[in-house]
Write a protein that binds this DNA or RNA. Structure first.
Lengths: 140, 140
DNA sequence: ATCCTTGCAAATGATTTGCAAGAGT
DNA sequence: ACTCTTGCAAATCATTTGCAAGGAT
């Protein structure tokens, strides 16, 4: 259970209810698009405006609290900032799941880029396919 | 030198000058956003409409001629469909470069997903950092 | 000859902005 | 108290659509 107020303040942002609700919702769901965040948070905070969600997502990405996950052919989703990991993206239902990074892969990528004078800041491994649930649903 | 007319027909699309010019421009530049494509192609085909670029990009992605490359915090770029590869994305200048896939990485990712009942269709490895040219530019 | 594609203009959808009122420190 | 944030409405920007004319097979 993360303390969102502390997280926000440490990142130099005021701890408003809107922001804490947004973070709580994203952490609960794992990965969410802007409209999904709005639709969820507005349930517990009915006066919330979509513009506020946009402003806060941008701000929290800039301040390193959130990370944008771009997805081929869809709107980007947002997740809490965490250690490097791999995304499994289901092209049927759109769900994104995290998997731990593979150490060897990590090393290979780092050594590849260092040989090139490319100063690596962030790696992003996205695997697109069909998740177990959607495979089961299609089989029936 | 690719024969774009053949490529298009094999993919079930008519070979119009607009499409061939778009493909030629993308291949020449490697990776381009929609507006960049329009700005380039309109030079050689002044009557080109931006809507035509949109329609054709969507169609060519659907038909497997092009691939969309989503990029954190930016508009997506498009590239010709080619073998799996890694993207080096410069966060300073926005340029995208291709590097060959690492076989071991490939195997690891495939074995990881197969253990999970995730049917893998496409992998996407994007490395964000600063390219050699931009590093040099900043140092000066 | 037929069907698909184009270019234009309008429509839609997504995101951003300005500003007065309210909340956080 | 002071400054930053919010919610609203309007503005902007990106993308999609409908349709008549032109192009590809």
């Amino acid at each position: 259970m993360t303390d969102y107020a502390v997280l926000l303040k440490e990142s130099g942002l005021k701890a408003t209810f809107q922001r804490m609700n947004i973070l709580e919702t994203i952490e609960k769901h794992g990965h969410m698009a802007i409209e999904e965040i709005y639709d969820e948070v507005v349930k517990v905070h009915p006066s919330l405006s979509l513009a506020t969600v946009y402003k806060n997502i941008i701000l929290m990405v800039e301040n390193g609290v959130l990370v944008e996950v771009p997805i081929t052919g869809k709107k980007p989703k947002y997740e809490l900032t965490k250690n490097d990991h791999i995304h499994l993206i289901c092209t049927e239902c759109g769900e994104v799941e995290d998997r731990p990074c593979l150490e060897e892969t990590d090393k290979l990528l780092k050594s590849m880029t260092s040989q090139e004078r490319f100063s690596l800041n962030k790696q992003q491994i996205n695997l697109y396919g069909v998740c177990a649930q959607c495979q089961a649903a299609k089989a029936s």
